[in-house]
């Protein structure tokens, strides 16, 4: 699948934003974060900034961005529509929670309840984003049991690393324990990703050039001549596929730079005093952002669509 920059930015930025929002809602509601003015202003500022950047970016690849509001109507059948509804709804509890935190100095009691609702809405929105991909039968690399948990884990990890930056700058007591949560998330996410890659390598999809043409009873089917001498929309959008050796290099990059370095930074940060710990948290978040971008690029580039069976592939 063609890895469109707008879609990569959408899923990664909104994932990080919803992750941070969810952590603030969750930890704030349980009294683990102080309802402090600047912490609220910067924390929610960055979280909403990332979410809005992501949502705007998702409209960049539309043919008619001005009609995007129409996408809220088909939530009965469409995961993309559900994602839009969930994203719009999340602004309500998250916005109220942010206002209560910043201007009323309150993130517990009623505000805490609203914070919990915001956190759940964030999780639901990321889940809907994942289901847009996980529901497509045409793409085996997406329609499996890994897509949903990996999207949720990646969002929790992105948001968690951003939160750790705030915790260490504010020198909050949680800065001593939260890194362990982040480290656990690293292990879980990497395990899920490695298992996903193994499954991707182990079995091929159930559709073949023979089933696509229905000519299997006559023998082995091979494309002799494509419909056009030039490329077409289908080949550009669905035909993109990264070479295996490049994919392997990029997977190593994700594991070492995207997961390994931030993992070490988080671990080292635990032993460092205040300002150095904050620097370690910033470095960890920055490298993870790079890793997420490559991971998401690979998510598209490694995905083979069954329509490629009509354009020379033998199995998808």
């Amino acid at each position: 699948m063609h890895p469109a920059k707008s879609v990569i930015l959408f899923t990664t930025a909104s994932g990080a934003g919803y992750g941070l929002l969810a952590w603030m809602g969750l930890l704030g509601a349980f009294g683990l974060l102080p309802a402090e003015f600047w912490l609220g202003l910067l924390g929610f500022g960055i979280a909403f900034g990332l979410v809005i950047l992501g949502l705007l970016s998702s409209t960049f690849h539309l043919g008619h961005p001005e009609r995007a509001w129409r996408a809220l109507s088909q939530w009965r059948s469409s995961w993309l529509s559900r994602e839009g509804v969930a994203a719009v709804f999340t602004f309500l509890p998250a916005g109220l929670f942010a206002l209560a935190w910043i201007f009323l100095g309150s993130n517990q009691g009623l505000a805490g309840l609203i914070g919990l609702i915001a956190a759940l809405s964030c999780i639901a929105t990321v889940a809907c984003t994942a289901m847009i991909y996980a529901s497509l039968k045409t793409i085996r690399a997406w329609r499996n049991n890994w897509t949903l948990p990996i999207y949720l884990l990646m969002a929790a990890l992105s948001g968690g690393l951003l939160l750790q930056v705030f915790l260490s700058i504010w020198r909050l007591p949680l800065a001593e324990t939260f890194p362990w949560v982040v480290l656990l998330l690293f292990v879980l996410t990497l395990a899920a990703k490695v298992l996903y890659w193994r499954e991707l390598g182990r079995e091929e999809g159930g559709s073949t050039a023979e089933s696509a043409t229905g000519l299997g009873h006559l023998g082995k089917v091979r494309l002799l001549e494509a419909p056009h001498s030039e490329s077409n929309y289908l080949m550009q959008e669905m035909g993109f596929r990264i070479a295996r050796k490049h994919a392997e290099k990029l997977r190593r990059f994700v594991v070492l730079i995207g997961f390994g370095l931030p993992f070490l930074a988080t671990l080292v940060g635990l032993a460092l005093p205040g300002s150095l710990a904050a620097a370690a948290a910033v470095i960890g978040a920055a490298f993870f952002a790079l890793g997420v971008a490559v991971e998401r690029w690979l998510f598209f580039a490694e995905a083979k669509h069954v329509v490629s069976l009509y354009y020379g592939e033998s199995r998808a």
Binding site: L62, G63, P65, R67, L80, L234, M238, V307
Partner: peptide
């Protein structure tokens, strides 16, 4: 009413 999101082309196995 189409917004040109192309998701239908991803969902169609037949191109």
């Amino acid at each position: 009413a189409c917004i040109g999101c192309k998701l239908c082309s991803w969902a169609c196995p037949y191109g």
